[in-house]
Design a protein around this nucleic acid. Sequence first.
DNA 1: TTGAATTATACCTTATCGGGTATAAAAAAT
DNA 2: ATTTTTTATACCCGATAAGGTATAATTCAA
Lengths: 76, 76
Amino acid sequence: MSESTLSQFIREKRKLLGLTQEELSFKAGVGLRFVRELETGKPTLRMDKVNQVLQLFGYELGATEINRKKLVDEES
Amino acid sequence: MSESTLSQFIREKRKLLGLTQEELSFKAGVGLRFVRELETGKPTLRMDKVNQVLQLFGYELGATEINRKKLVDEES
DNA sequence: TTGAATTATACCTTATCGGGTATAAAAAAT
DNA sequence: ATTTTTTATACCCGATAAGGTATAATTCAA
């Protein structure tokens, strides 16, 4: 799990659970189009909607250091 | 810097730099009202605007583990 | 305490996000 | 190769975020 960007993080987590975008959107309670835009890196998304998705994975939006070198795993 | 919530994080960082909400909003290129809503925890804010503010502190929005116990400082 | 500075809340307008739907492209399976 | 599944892109509409402005509340200094 490299998590260079939020979009990659979401996609990787989703695939890890073996879900399609449609299944994820249903589970998260957001529109399918939103999941697409999220995974394709649209920057203007609303935080609450993004959090609905992240919570399925046990994550949420937070402030992260910009030049924080991401190590092997998501642990730091 | 405890950073339990994003709003607290922003406010603490701002005070650390000795800025008023107005000065921060100007530097970040967002409206004053946005900074207020950000620091009072409005959950429906747009990610790009939040990132404009966070970048002033060298931070950005990212996925963080939900039950990640925040230790003494922001370092983990 | 008084007054100035800072922060909070409410109203209004404009821009656009989120969602649905449809179509196309790409990927995966048979 | 063909079919099915999955993902991407475009259009439309309703809801609301963002910003400006004004007013109230709070904080802080003198």
